[in-house]
Simulated scan of single mutants.
Amino acid sequence: MTDARPTETRLRIAKFGIGAVVRHRIYPFRGIVFDVDPVFDNTEDWWLAIPEEARPRKDQPFYHLLAENAETEYVAYVSEQNLVPDTSGESLRHAGIPEMFERDPGGTYRMRDRTAN
């Protein structure tokens, strides 16, 4: 006899919101959150390319970041378990930020209003 109950998925509330400045807990990069997936939503090939010992769980929020390290700027997709708040107060230099965000006098990044004129 098989269990006919639907598989239960537990969604967690994302720890970081849009505009949060975060850094990776292991690798030397930081970035700004521009989108959040409540659970893993990338390709299986992407997930399997991560070494098994470092592979994150899929049942957690994943963040799209405008990311940067000392050498370059890029877009990153990172699990919540691998992010911590960036409390440095340093501005981010990513070229995509001015298009998506504005920074208030207190240093907080907010999404730009994208309504049509």
Rank of each mutant, 00 (worst) to 15 (best):
F34I: 06
P56R: 02
E71G: 10
L83K: 01
D35S: 15
P98L: 08
F101L: 02
Y77G: 08
L48M: 11
I32S: 01
E52C: 05
V75N: 15
T9M: 10
G31D: 03
L65E: 04
G106L: 13
D3R: 06
F29C: 00
K58R: 15
R30F: 07
A95M: 13
D113P: 01
I26K: 15
T72P: 00
L65M: 09
Y74C: 03
E99H: 12
I26L: 11
R25P: 00
P51D: 10
L11E: 05
R55K: 09
P6W: 05
A20K: 00
W47I: 11
G106F: 13
T2G: 05
P51N: 04
A14E: 13
H64M: 14
M100W: 11
E73Q: 12
H64A: 11
V78S: 01
R5D: 13
D86Q: 06
H64Q: 13
A67V: 01
A116E: 10
R103I: 05
N82M: 08
G106M: 10
V21F: 03
M100K: 06
T2C: 04
Y109G: 01
D86K: 05
A4N: 11
T87F: 11
H24P: 05
P105R: 12
L11M: 09
D3E: 09
G19Y: 02
G96L: 12
M1F: 14
N42A: 15
T115E: 15
A54H: 13
R10C: 13
E71V: 04
R103S: 03
T108N: 14
N69D: 14
A54Y: 09
P38E: 14
G17R: 07
F40E: 10
A49G: 14
R25A: 10
D104C: 04
H94L: 02
P61K: 01
W46Q: 09
D35T: 06
G89F: 09
I50A: 08
A54S: 10
L92T: 01
I26H: 12
E68Q: 07
V75P: 06
A67Y: 01
N69V: 07
G96H: 06
R10H: 15
W47D: 10
P85T: 07
I50D: 02
F62K: 03
F40R: 15
E53D: 15
G106T: 13
E99D: 14
E102A: 10
V39F: 08
F16G: 00
Y74M: 11
N117C: 10
F29H: 04
D3S: 09
I13F: 15
I97T: 00
L11D: 04
T115N: 15
A14N: 09
T2Y: 05
Y77V: 09
Q81A: 15
E44C: 07
I18T: 04
G89Y: 06
P51Y: 03
G96N: 09
A116Q: 14
Q60G: 04
A116H: 07
P6D: 06
H64K: 12
R25N: 15
A70P: 02
D37W: 13
L11P: 00
R110P: 00
Y74I: 05
R57N: 12
R5W: 11
E8C: 15
N42C: 08
V84F: 02
A116I: 09
S88A: 04
Y63S: 01
I26T: 14
D113Y: 04
F34K: 00
I13Q: 15
T87W: 10
D41E: 11
D59F: 09
G89K: 04
E71K: 09
N69P: 06
V39K: 12
R30K: 11
A95Y: 15
F62Q: 02
I50E: 04
E102K: 08
D86P: 02
